[in-house]
């Protein structure tokens, strides 16, 4: 049995661990900044897994809208057919890859040449290099999207960030919520009395509220073929889910493995504890 002191020690230890574990988030200069709404995602929670239809829709938005300016260097075409992702068929991925040109070479004459992409190739970047991307985007560099959903977050503050670590109510989807909220947080006009510089746009979610990316997507811009309403809200959610997969493609496998590990370790701990009790049974301690 654990006594009061021990319980106190455990409580303090946990509190300490939790407190010390404070992930610090970048606080923007705009103090009236809005927090993203916490959405419900299929990939959240103990048994979370990606929703293939959502990832396929999100990929469509990514391909038709985001990919015009943003690179995704770590995305290989073959990934789109892998389990736990959008799970397009091998044939679909081959056909998709063939629509893109990638640079290869040098050939026997020493020249670089272009050929249709193969599944093993990575997603072609829209610009030749960062400077070309800046030049084409008014000086701003559209960030690579490969791990963007893990590179974006927002501050939850005490005590929420402690609770976010606890089993059952854990929260790890800050990045997806942030991106989904940001896409819907554009305002046509900045608040009264605020002047924006050229090439700046007002966004309620962006830290500091000034964003160099013009409003990228609006209702009806991308055709959905599965009956999902083509609204900005759905686009935002679907592309955020896709970006989460892009940043964490092994999430399905991770959660499945994790559940087995936890169950197994609970049993093993119980067995070891019972064995230990048996061995110590004749020893007063």
């Amino acid at each position: 049995m654990l006594s009061k002191t021990s319980l106190g020690m455990i409580a303090a230890g946990l509190m300490g661990a939790a407190l010390l574990g404070a992930p610090a988030f970048a606080e923007g200069s705009g103090h009236d900044q809005m927090k993203p709404t916490r959405l419900s995602w299929s990939f959240a929670g103990f048994f979370g897994h990606y929703d293939q239809a959502q990832l396929q829709r999100g990929f469509k938005v990514f391909r038709e809208v985001c990919a015009n300016c943003h690179a995704a260097e770590k995305l290989a075409f073959r990934n789109l057919a892998e389990p736990g992702g959008p799970e397009f068929s091998e044939a679909q991925v081959k056909a998709l890859a063939a629509q893109y040109k990638v640079k290869d070479g040098p050939n026997d004459a020493g020249d670089m040449f272009e050929r249709p992409a193969r599944p093993s190739d990575t997603w072609p970047s829209p610009f030749a290099n960062d400077n070309a991307a800046r030049a084409a985007n008014g000086g701003g560099l559209p960030p690579d999207m490969s791990v963007l959903a893990k590179a974006r977050s927002y501050k939850r503050g005490f005590p929420w960030f402690v609770l976010d670590a606890l089993p059952g109510i854990q929260y790890q989807e800050h990045g997806a919520d942030y991106i989904a909220a940001l896409l819907q947080a554009y305002k046509d006009e900045p608040p009264h009395g605020v002047k924006l510089d050229a090439g700046q746009y007002w966004n309620d979610i962006m830290p500091g509220n000034r964003i160099a990316m013009p409003k990228p997507i609006s209702d009806g811009q991308v055709d959905y073929t599965d009956g999902t309403p083509a609204t900005l809200e759905n686009y935002s959610k679907d592309v955020s889910a896709f970006l989460m997969w892009l940043a964490e493609p092994k999430l399905d496998q991770r959660k499945k493995t994790g559940f087995r590990v936890l169950v197994f370790m609970a049993i093993l701990t119980g067995l070891l504890y019972a064995t230990k009790k048996r061995v110590w049974a004749n020893t007063p301690h």
Partner: peptide, 20 residues
């Protein structure tokens, strides 16, 4: 605490085998 000294040896062996 010292009440399980007469535990059935088969059950004890089972526990050890399961843990191992």
């Amino acid at each position: 605490m010292a009440t399980t000294s007469t535990a059935d040896p088969t059950r004890r062996d089972m526990l050890y085998i399961a843990t191992g």
